[in-house]
Design a protein around this nucleic acid. Sequence first.
DNA 1: AATGAATGAGGATTCATTCAT
DNA 2: AATGAATGAATCCTCATTCAT
Lengths: 240, 240, 240, 240
Amino acid sequence: MAVKRGAGQAGAEDATPAGQAPQARRPLRRGQRGPSPDKTARRRDGIVRAAMAAFMEHGFADATMADVAQRAGVAKGTPYRYFPTKEALFEGVVQEVIGKALFGAGKETRLAGERVGAYLRRTLLPAMREIELAGRAAVARLVIAEGARFPALVEVYRREAYEPLLRRIEALGREAVAEGELRSDALVRFPHILVGPLWLGMLHNGLFRQAGVLDIGEMFAAELDLIFGPPPESPPTHVG
Amino acid sequence: MAVKRGAGQAGAEDATPAGQAPQARRPLRRGQRGPSPDKTARRRDGIVRAAMAAFMEHGFADATMADVAQRAGVAKGTPYRYFPTKEALFEGVVQEVIGKALFGAGKETRLAGERVGAYLRRTLLPAMREIELAGRAAVARLVIAEGARFPALVEVYRREAYEPLLRRIEALGREAVAEGELRSDALVRFPHILVGPLWLGMLHNGLFRQAGVLDIGEMFAAELDLIFGPPPESPPTHVG
Amino acid sequence: MAVKRGAGQAGAEDATPAGQAPQARRPLRRGQRGPSPDKTARRRDGIVRAAMAAFMEHGFADATMADVAQRAGVAKGTPYRYFPTKEALFEGVVQEVIGKALFGAGKETRLAGERVGAYLRRTLLPAMREIELAGRAAVARLVIAEGARFPALVEVYRREAYEPLLRRIEALGREAVAEGELRSDALVRFPHILVGPLWLGMLHNGLFRQAGVLDIGEMFAAELDLIFGPPPESPPTHVG
Amino acid sequence: MAVKRGAGQAGAEDATPAGQAPQARRPLRRGQRGPSPDKTARRRDGIVRAAMAAFMEHGFADATMADVAQRAGVAKGTPYRYFPTKEALFEGVVQEVIGKALFGAGKETRLAGERVGAYLRRTLLPAMREIELAGRAAVARLVIAEGARFPALVEVYRREAYEPLLRRIEALGREAVAEGELRSDALVRFPHILVGPLWLGMLHNGLFRQAGVLDIGEMFAAELDLIFGPPPESPPTHVG
DNA sequence: AATGAATGAGGATTCATTCAT
DNA sequence: AATGAATGAATCCTCATTCAT
């Protein structure tokens, strides 16, 4: 059923900007009225958490604000004190997760003499292994599912999470080619190739969980083996 | 007490071929009454097309049956003659596409002496290049987006479209390893690696179209180069 | 959902008057086209019967024309050839039953020297005993249930079925008083008293069937005993 | 994308007493928020009244929730806060009336030396006289008309209203026989005989009102005269 | 700040009726 | 005369949002 009756455009300048706790603007007063800032922050957090669960379970359109409120243990009107519309709440949820530095890779630099394959194994692989745990896969699935309704959010996601990783891989691919580690410039032209399996994995585990969970970490390790050759120390799963 | 009802103009005739009669394929009857089976089939098909467009544009929950009907040029109640509920209509849309043999690969066998990479370039690559045109990418995105609401449909999709391709790639990977074309068994353990970029491409073109369309065919070609080495005749996109 | 969109007022002068078979106005022609009048009459009858069943099962509003048609084994449009609207069909059903002389009583005159109680036992009691079988109770229940929607029909029912019986009883009550068989003029003033249990019985068997069927014939016999005293020959169900 | 929503005027306050809180009787809370329980109860009651009127006027199927809301002076969605479905609202209406102790008879015991006829004149007759006023006749008609759709409700009605009166009459009939007041055991075997005219009266006044209202009280008095003999003090409507 | 009763726009669905075949 | 596909008005119900308390 979607949002048909919102008061304003999502993300527009509403009284209470999405993503900020109401009390943010309230100067501390003596004779404190209402909940402590601490409690308020906790409440906002509980609402976001509840909303994430609700959206993931039902999708944006079918999740109800009443359900969110109930999961958060607050009254039906309370989430509106933190997010002016359902859309803003959704954005709050997604940005909460995007904000948590989507991928560690790109933050660390290659060690001296470290080959690209080794570097990826050291930095990106652990992130992959954790990707389900961190709820990032779930949010990615949410963005995919609801992207048509939230172009602005998609743009943020693309800019903050999707492109940086691709650019980083592109650069690494270029280095790998320059250093003779790769003969093909495929990763330079299509860094998507490296992360594609990751996305497939997230989707697989979102859609086809019942038919068996895909171990994204293991898959990524195998992919690195396939593209960069097996790691030198541990000659694991290869043939001949 | 009684309210007049205008008869209403018959919806504009659309002209789309193929399709099925409302309930089941109606056996030809003598003394044919009512619209020809042909026209009925056209109408059903027009509704499915309209629904696909509507679902792709708004998502399942936000697409309205009225919109579907209007796009199909029929009255609001007409889609219900062909699909008892909105959900059934959605399933009709997806199965329509699934039914159209998702990938050519697996239908053809490898030629004598043909290497696996070459075989994939010959069979799977063309399918990739057409994947957007055929609406398969769009349907895949729909299944991803609405999967939580349609577990049965997801299962069908998995069984009919997703798994067969993975199994085929797994088998090919095994052959490639046995024949020395690949040294890693990564594709045997995770055939997902090969199709991952394909899925990413579909999502990319669904979500980030505005930031640039990803050429899935080219990307897949590059991927084959990366994994299987460049094709012998045309030494194209590689370095040094 | 009732009839909201009928073309005209129920019972008004439509092309095909309710209650008449279509062929009624068609002069016999040689080279006969279409079904024989006989078959047509049978079809009309089948539709009425199907409608009666449907209305009794679901009530007027919830019975669907499609259901009626299916029960009658004809196409959805066919009933409209015999009855212009659903309301007309309903009226056709009721009048069909009303037409069948609701009660035998009143048709026969008292025998010479026959007391009123005996006369009622001889004439009305058998009608009571059959009232369920004849479907008259069912139609009475229908009229009760849907009366608000069919004032004209209620009026017919009242005039043709309800009042005649009351008038007859009133007259008999007067005779009974005059002849000393009854001391109270209650039946003269309220002939309803005599038929009230009958109505209750019909309702009981319509509503509370599951909790036990009420034997209307037996009840009426007991009522006659109570009011007129036990029949002389067989002193059955009384005390002392 | 977002459509503006007017806030709308709050519905006019109605002023009807008694009733229940939406879900269950809400225990008084400290720091009371929202409308007083009193106002909530009034609103619920107003909705029930409006629904009773609507159902009685149109029958269940043809009464619309919008009409109920309008009659109650509330918004279209408000009745749903009190009754989850139209059916539940109907049940609420019926139980509201059933709950009001259907008949005084059976609550009072016979006075010492009071004959059964006198007792019935003292207790049941006044209830009969009021039966239309209290809306009980209307509800009985509703139950009759819509019984097929509400078997559970019919059962409640039977258990709470119908059977108790029959059992009471049966017992009284037995006493009357034992005490020599009645010679026939008809009322013992068929207590329905005594209440039958009452039901007929309710139906008569529901269906045939236009042709003249039946005075149920007078009729019942006449019936008691007929069955138990005239009251000793006032030798009223009998024939010399 | 929080509550939750009330609002009312919106949409899926039903089905009496029409009419081309 | 019969058919049954198509029509579209009507209505139940949901739920995001508001606001008096």
